[in-house]
Design a protein around this nucleic acid. Structure first.
Lengths: 225, 225
DNA sequence: CGTCATTAATTGACTCGTCAATCAATAACT
DNA sequence: AGTTATTGATTGACGAGTCAATTAATGACG
């Protein structure tokens, strides 16, 4: 056998893919660019990933599992339900998610979901996990209202993420001085919204009784792949 | 002069651009495709729009002003503040915004904003208008808390739009049976969130006093272009 | 310990198609 | 006749994916 293990090479290529998507802000990245950034020849990318879309989907899985790891880590030290909510929100707006690379990847993956079944599936997986985590964290406070509220909070997280992520971009035309990007304001907003939802007197109940958590799975219990 | 007026041609080409973006789900659409769809030769697209990015930005402006028109129209019949809030939400989740074309355009424009200053500016313009409208509609109910709440509601609208728009896509692999796509569940969620925010007792106030509506402009007062 | 055969990773030149943008020619109008 | 929209063939560049050749490792055998 030669130089590096398959696993290592795949990791390198995926990392390079994310790096290049981050640098260009597009999925219009040539395999040559990616290969060069990974320090290999263009042909090798096709050896390990059959085509470009496969490489993109692998990159997407990587971003998703990185986010999952962030959440899991943040959740590890949380004991109270409040802590749990905080952990989820902090992870979503933390440094990890606000790197230029991650932002670029997320936004472009949303667009990819329009034409790729698999991308859509992965995005859906992310949403289900987020929802599940939120329900688990919110149930002690608001019981059966949790699924309904969680759906809104999930949407709010995505929406505010998008806004602050693009705002960030707006303020940094050149990519110097990166790093201190900040999602904490977004996090604050989410926590406020949760406070509001938990305080409300609820005359009108669930919008969708249909999916009121049929199998209340533990947070992050789903298989990654 | 020949066949059609400049304005008409531009309109045709912009419409064709949106149509093609909608059909493909990408900005990777050739000028030939667009031209063909508009019933003209490829060269003409470059005559009226200097290059492809210009055409995309024109398409984005078109989508934005269409949305603006929807909101304005919905707002026209609204007399009470409640009506105003409803109008904004209904427009955001209405038929106009949930056409395949519109969804595809919006999502791809978010991605475009990562690399185009101008796209970012346009998106920012949209956000400011939405915020402004929300503040105007919410102020009677919650006074000085309006700007803060409006920021969250704006984010929530974007986030839920994205979710339901992509869900929609998920359920319709083939583009037959389109049309009856539905954003009303998203709208319901937004109204719930607003109810929750308006009910809350507010111990802790604005997250950002800085921009507490320095010039309380009327809704949709800003110049379109 | 060498040396050579075997196996597998890695290369990069190449193919074939595609596409943005141009421009000289033409058609439609006044 | 003169003006202006419109055409579509063309160019030049570029990029995805292929493949035959090359290089590095492993180990078998002396």
């Amino acid at each position: 056998m030669a130089r590096k293990s398959e696993e290592e090479r795949r990791r390198d290529l995926i990392a390079a893919t994310i790096r290049e998507i981050g640098a260009s802000g597009t999925l219009n990245v040539t395999t040559s660019q990616i290969a060069k950034s990974a320090g290999v020849s263009p042909g090798l990318a096709f050896h390990y990933f059959h085509d470009k879309d496969t490489l993109f989907l692998a990159a997407m899985r990587s971003i998703l599992s990185e986010y999952k790891a962030d959440v899991t880590h943040a959740l590890a030290g949380a004991r109270t339900p409040e802590d749990r909510v905080n952990a989820i929100v902090q992870a979503s707006f933390g440094m990890g998610s606000f790197r230029r690379e991650a932002i670029s990847a997320w936004v472009n993956f949303y667009a990819l979901a329009l034409r790729s079944e698999e991308a859509r599936r992965l995005l859906y997986l992310y949403q289900r996990r987020l929802h599940s985590n939120l329900v688990f964290a919110l149930r002690p406070r608001i019981a059966e209202r949790a699924p309904d509220v969680a759906r809104r909070i999930g949407g709010l997280i995505d929406g505010l993420y998008l806004r602050y992520a693009l705002d960030t971009k707006m303020l940094r035309p050149r990519e110097e001085a990166v790093g201190e990007v900040d999602g904490s304001e977004g996090a604050q907003h989410v926590l406020r919204a949760i406070a509001a939802e938990c305080t409300e007197v609820h005359e009108n109940d669930d919008i969708s009784m249909a999916d009121a958590d049929p199998a209340p799975m533990a947070p992050l219990a789903g298989p990654q792949e």
